[in-house]
Design a protein around this nucleic acid. Structure first.
Lengths: 327, 327
DNA sequence: TTGTATGCGTTATCAA
DNA sequence: TTGATAACGCATACAA
């Protein structure tokens, strides 16, 4: 590990001068600048991140809590997050988040990251306190289910979106519409479930507990649950199903195929994210389009604002209804 | 930000004593220990990570370069990595890796992480030098395509695995067997392609460039490429296709369904990872089982070895053939 | 059993 | 235009 002192010695200057060159400060003669640059190059010197972070009280690192690293919907958000923040000079870390691991994370906040990005998770009160104590700004993509103290989130207007989907299905003649929910009430999918229920009521359609299946956010589980539902013989009770995620909608599609129930003729299905896969299913999936790049970009923008001491603000973007072959 | 000095003042002791308590050093009276603990609790003190990292020249952080964050195969590895390392007291960071971003990462190694985990990527020579200069151990899950200086990798024996798959298909009567490859020669999938070619030759079956399609590791692209292949009318030239990833195998399945080509009657398809999804496709997918939890656990074990100064070592585990309905 | 003092690699202030 | 030097928060050798 070569430190600044060695560079200074080799260039025959003081450590301060090396700093000036490194940070492009004015007031260093070209000759000295060149000598320092040469020494840095020769020695392969890299500034120590830890020392700089200690001195500056700034890490240039951001952290993202991800619900599940294999999720294609989240991946679309993460890619944009990573690109934009890297261009801004930040390093961004991804971790999977689970409620029961929050405690492990609490000691994580002191002097490691400048900001925290959430993917709609609701944090425990103590964790929030720890974050606040360290003065770490939090921005959530997707509105947390429990509002909490998180003042900055970026999301779509789920109720308006679900209303569009429901109106479309209603127009197709559907009256009994079900919903494949996540099941975990702390999961960001929960907000989509609530929005579905609210929109159904506003459309004058019935919702009760029998309207819901629970697919845990996973294709496989959703497929299994749907298969069980269809096998119960009460098939036909609902004529259409929405899902809290495209992955779960795809699972339902697979279950219908297995059960030889024609979609959309006998059963309508729709998702609410527009992940790439929904264009490749048979039939292609009717979805709400969730503008992931825009949302991620806005989230970063908000984060930078907060890091600059500007006040928190939230935004809700619009979804777009894409009618395809599954409805 | 509350520092150790404040804790010391409140407890009426020196900063050193606070350190002793914090690090569970012996030789502190119970009374003092209690007082310090109380002060820490009251003030909500958390040790500064940056300061500790600077002093100890150890960050307790590991980094993982991931090919694609939405990939279900990689996700299975990441989950295990995260669990095990966290239990060992490490924080683990995930980043997506792309060749053209290596330069950005070069300054990342100085004082930020103790070790680097790769998912089969081949790094540039300069990057490798930078890593070596910082004395950061590297362990790769999946053998890198270009051997390089990476002395520690954990993988399965791909050639033996591909041989099992091919022998199985041969036994089913297939002679013309194709392979859906990635196309990116630096991608870890490339090794599976090479293993396929080698195993085919050893089985006395023909392989040439026409044996390969290129799905870029993605379901959608694989499906599109397969659809194009089937539409060419030369369909029937190959009677079976393997894929470098289960996701791509699933894409081929979807393409066959679209083209109304019955699998496995007219066309055999198989994957080589055994991700969960392969149990839910129609038909279920014949696969090689890649033991992800075991591989990930071994990788962590090797990393800890290297961190303790023990010599590098590599391992190759066995795959298992799971014959299901697609072949 | 506890305290003092030093250094880790930086940045930044103040002198020279 | 450059150089000493004092922090930053922590761990630890050594002294008390």
């Amino acid at each position: 590990m070569v430190s600044r002192k060695e560079v200074a010695d080799m260039a025959g200057v003081s450590v301060a001068t090396v700093s000036y060159v490194l940070n492009d400060k004015p007031g260093v003669s070209d000759a000295v600048r060149e000598r320092v640059r040469y020494a840095i190059e020769q020695l392969g010197y890299k500034p120590s991140y830890a020392a700089r972070a200690l001195k500056m009280k700034k890490t240039n690192c951001l952290s993202v809590f991800v619900n599940y690293l294999g999720d294609p919907f989240e991946a679309g958000l993460l890619n944009t997050l990573e690109h934009i923040t890297r261009k801004l000079g930040y390093f961004i870390y991804f971790h999977t988040y689970q409620q029961d691991q929050e405690e492990d994370f609490r000691r994580y906040f002191a002097g490691r990251i400048d900001g925290l990005l959430l993917m709609g998770q609701s944090l425990r009160e103590e964790t929030l306190q720890a974050i606040k104590a360290e003065d770490i700004p939090v921005v959530s993509i997707m509105e947390p289910v429990r509002a909490q103290g998180i003042a900055a989130y970026i999301d779509v207007d789920w109720e308006a979106g679900m209303a569009k989907l429901i109106a479309h299905l209603k127009h197709q003649g559907h009256r009994k519409i079900g919903f494949m929910a996540n099941g975990d009430k702390e999961h960001p999918h929960e907000r989509r479930k609530l929005a579905f229920a609210a929109a159904m009521k506003r459309e004058g359609l019935a919702v009760d507990e029998s309207s819901f299946l629970y697919g845990c956010g996973r294709l496989e589980e959703s497929q299994a649950q749907m298969a069980k539902y269809l096998a119960r013989g009460t098939a036909g009770y609902h004529t259409a199903f929405l899902a809290a995620s495209d992955l779960m909608a795809t699972g339902m599609l697979a279950a219908c195929r297995e059960a030889r129930i024609p979609v959309p003729e006998q059963f309508g299905i729709a998702g609410c994210e527009n992940i790439l896969m929904t264009l490749q299913t048979t039939p292609t999936l009717t979805v709400l389009h969730y503008p992931r790049p825009e949302i991620a970009a806005l989230a970063v923008e908000r984060m930078i604002d907060l890091l600059n001491g500007e006040p928190a603000a939230s935004s809700k973007l619009e979804t777009k209804l894409l009618v395809r072959d599954s409805s």
